[in-house]
């Protein structure tokens, strides 16, 4: 018989779901996409991934240890997730110092200045990516020719499909994308190359009840609807629904970036509105903006609106109107 028993308020046990476990699930869900991009781009992709994760984790450790003088928070694995997501937004073979700058912006600026996990307003990985995109446009949009183990890529060296739109025009670009694209590949960064791998990871998260599907579905639906309407009005100028769903960062952004707990609304309907906002802004940027791709900007803009959305959408309370 023990000398003294524990006393605490109810409940007396806990669901086996911790922050660490949730982050581990996200890491697992990202693995298919990582493997596919490894198969396409080879070891250089793994190198970028390793650099990114290492920089992010080290930075978080150093900042908590030396600047905030708090116990380190790297154990919750959130820095690993940020590192992976950042790497998935970078072209393989990019120089290590660019990765380091990205990590500094992601972890140092976007996450830790706000107080660390749970306090940040903007998605750290996207903030890092956007900073790099604006600062190093050339390096960030130079896609290497796939040099890995699979060579059946309809390689677009130097330009992705979305960039083709600005070069070739909507109609010709549209023709390059079919449902098959889903299964083969899309040129671009690691996170863009295989939609099916990303969707598999997303399904895993939904089935494990790590995330709810509404934000992602809302983005897909909005993108499809907006594109379908514009395409119907003028197919010469505006690309179609399928093209817009499968190109660029839509799948990665909708599945993994927009669903980040911290920077997305909590309620289901809030999530739907959030997703609609992202989809709409994205399409506006694609159709009328000077950048070929706008997923990152769309998510960052909607991140800002999250506190407002949270205020507007509350849970239905029992016994109250």
């Amino acid at each position: 018989m023990a000398e003294s028993y524990i006393v605490s308020g109810n409940p007396h046990w806990h669901a086996p779901v911790s922050t660490k476990r949730l982050m581990l699930d996200v890491i697992i869900a990202l693995c298919p996409a990582v493997i596919v991009s490894f198969l396409y781009y080879g070891w250089s992709e793994i190198l970028v991934m390793a650099e990114s994760i290492a920089f992010c984790v080290l930075l978080e450790w150093a900042i908590t240890r030396f600047l905030m003088k708090k116990p380190s928070t790297i154990g919750d694995l959130s820095a690993v997730v940020t590192g992976m997501l950042l790497a998935m937004n970078l072209p393989s073979g990019i120089s290590w110092w660019i990765v380091l700058i990205g990590a500094v912006v992601s972890i140092g600026v976007a996450k830790m200045t706000f107080g660390g996990l749970g306090q940040n307003i903007f998605n750290p990985a996207i903030t890092g990516r956007v900073f790099l995109l604006v600062s190093f446009p050339a390096q960030m949009t130079t896609w290497p020719v796939p040099s890995g183990f699979i060579h059946n890529v309809d390689a677009f060296s130097g330009a992705t499909l979305l960039q083709q739109v600005k070069i070739l025009g909507a109609a010709d670009a549209d023709a390059l994308v079919s449902l098959q694209t889903l299964f083969t590949n899309i040129g671009g960064s690691a996170g863009e190359i295989s939609a099916i791998a990303l969707l598999a990871g997303w399904l895993y998260l939904v089935c494990r009840r790590v995330i709810k599907p509404w934000i992602t579905l809302s983005i897909f639906a909005t993108v499809a609807c907006v594109a379908a309407v514009f395409h119907a009005v003028n197919p010469e100028l505006y690309t179609g629904a399928l093209f817009n769903l499968l190109t660029g960062g839509v799948v990665l952004g909708a599945c993994f970036m927009a669903t980040d707990y911290v920077t997305s609304p909590m309620s289901t309907w809030g999530g739907v509105v959030f997703g609609f906002g992202i989809g709409f802004i994205l399409m506006m940027i694609r159709y009328f903006g000077s950048y070929p791709e706008g997923m990152s900007f769309a998510i960052l803009l909607m991140n800002m609106a999250v506190p407002l959305i949270n205020m507007a959408f509350h849970q239905k309370k029992y016994g109250r109107k």
Binding site: H12, T19, T73, V262, M266, K316, K317
Partner: peptide
């Protein structure tokens, strides 16, 4: 009778705003 490993309170870490608490609340509170 509960084992230490079952009943131990976890070390508190930062809220990640996952919304699980409001999802679980049977009174619809946050």
């Amino acid at each position: 009778y509960l084992k230490e490993s079952t009943t131990r309170r976890w070390t508190e870490s930062a809220c990640i705003r996952c919304g699980r608490c409001s999802e679980a609340c049977p009174m619809g509170l946050e």
